[in-house]
């Protein structure tokens, strides 16, 4: 990634999602990447916090991930879910106590030996531009140890990106926009 080409055009600035997206962006089954009845369905959940440790009740989250076999899918139908087509993408507005839930599957490794993760985007009133981060699955210790991003972080920072597997099989990761255990948020090449 050393010779990243220069951009020809300057990107348009982002702005906050504001408080009033609730009648516009959520849609039926927006957080159900698979049906609850899917034999391998997994609950991904957590809470979104601000810099005082208070819950944020008006954030909107989106996830984007590979399927169980690590394939990146390119299928229409996210906005009108039929309950059968896995599109890899989901959206949810957090609830009144900052909680979020997705029903999905564990993503597979996209390449052999790679640590599987789910991409997460955070929008909120008060947040002037979107934030990107990753939710890593906790199981493959060797892959996590070899992951270039995780390797570039301190142990405390790494913990903000690795989900916990709970007894019922669900994945749990809280998001902290600010403060002591602040989530590591990411920038990518070619943003400006």
């Amino acid at each position: 990634m050393t010779n990243t080409p220069e951009l020809k055009l300057t990107p348009t600035p982002g702005q906050t999602i504001g408080p009033f997206y609730g009648y516009a962006l959520p849609f039926e089954k927006d957080n159900e990447l698979v049906n609850h009845a899917h034999p391998n369905s997994v609950r991904l959940h957590g809470v979104v916090y601000d810099g005082n440790g208070e819950v944020i009740p008006d954030a909107l989250l989106e996830i984007w991930q590979a399927d169980e076999d690590g394939n990146v899918v390119s299928r229409e139908g996210s906005l009108v879910r039929d309950g059968y087509t896995f599109t890899g993408w989901g959206r949810t507005a957090v609830n009144n106590v900052g909680g979020y839930n997705f029903t999905t599957v564990n993503p597979g490794a996209t390449d052999q030996g790679k640590a599987p993760f789910i991409m997460l985007t955070v929008f909120a009133r008060g947040l002037l531009n979107r934030l990107f981060t990753r939710i890593y699955l906790p199981e493959d210790a060797a892959a996590l140890a070899n992951d270039p991003l995780l390797a570039s972080l301190s142990e405390a920072e790494r913990q903000t990106l690795i989900a916990t597997r709970e007894a019922d099989g669900s994945l749990r990761l809280d998001i902290r926009l600010q403060g002591e255990d602040e989530t590591v948020f990411l920038s990518y090449p070619r943003e400006s």
């Binding site: 208070e54 008060g126 926009l177 600010q178 590591v184 948020f185 990411l186 920038s187």
Partner: peptide, 11 residues
């Protein structure tokens, strides 16, 4: 209270 205080981390 809703902005990260650390720089974004390059990925």
């Amino acid at each position: 209270l809703r902005h990260p205080t650390k720089n974004l981390h390059h990925a």
